[in-house]
Write a protein that binds this DNA or RNA. Sequence first.
DNA 1: TCTGAAAGCCAGAGTCC
DNA 2: GGACTCTGGCTTTCAGA
Lengths: 157, 157
Amino acid sequence: MDEIDRKIVIAVQQDGAAGLADLAKVSGLSVSATAERLKRLEERGVVRGWHAELDPAEVGCPLLAFLRVAIRPGKEDIAFRRLIRKLETVLECHQLTGEWSYLVKLRLPDIAALETLMAEEIRPLAGMERISVEIAMATVKETALLPVIRAPEEEEA
Amino acid sequence: MDEIDRKIVIAVQQDGAAGLADLAKVSGLSVSATAERLKRLEERGVVRGWHAELDPAEVGCPLLAFLRVAIRPGKEDIAFRRLIRKLETVLECHQLTGEWSYLVKLRLPDIAALETLMAEEIRPLAGMERISVEIAMATVKETALLPVIRAPEEEEA
DNA sequence: TCTGAAAGCCAGAGTCC
DNA sequence: GGACTCTGGCTTTCAGA
């Protein structure tokens, strides 16, 4: 992960439709060398995949909501995680420090869908101690573009 | 946005590297018809862009943190939003219902970087009423893949 | 690990059905 | 919308350094 890899990775993250010819200009190397580096970055898992970014509203999920969940550890916790992974309206679920167990990010068509999800899937779960629902009224920023940090010591092969 | 568009959109979201030949198989149409539909979906903004997905840890941002911010409305609020949009370690910022103004999602190299950010950028802001910092200890799920909902009535051209 | 060239593939435009 | 064609540009691969 040297400076050239970093340039390539930043470029493909911003524009995944860029061809090798474009990337070669960015990296300063030849097309074939750029292609080899990109292939290695994919093999090493630095580049995980390629995706089209969709407009949430256009795709029928204008509603953004967050759940805070406190759940008893153990068997109930396992069941909760299994459910979370199954539900495609759940985009993210992280276990956080603090008194709440989980933060859950949801994308849904409308409030009715949210209420249905809560009533039929979430609330019936055993071991739920507290649930809080918050709705996004506005989004100041929402990007999947990661900052690519230059780590001084990790100039590996 | 009919059933065929939906198939195309789901396919390119999952695999943005798929060629038109693959997409044609998915859609059931010819290659040229599939290409036209995809082009229209991009023009209409349903497909917003193309990106490579990176591994956060590999890119030097293993630490995931969330901020809760309560800020006085008005001039201070504007300044806060401007800062948020500028910082590339801030991936998301949403205004939520409830007593906290904002939920902020951060990706950072380590705790030291988080503390630096808080001390130098966030806390000095005027009008800050409350700030809470939470760190992700584990991630159960994290995807950018939106659910593509079939909206019964919006069968437009 | 890079360069450069050669070979093969795919997307894009045009036409007709 | 489908099928066909052609062309340009791009990706891929390989020899050579």
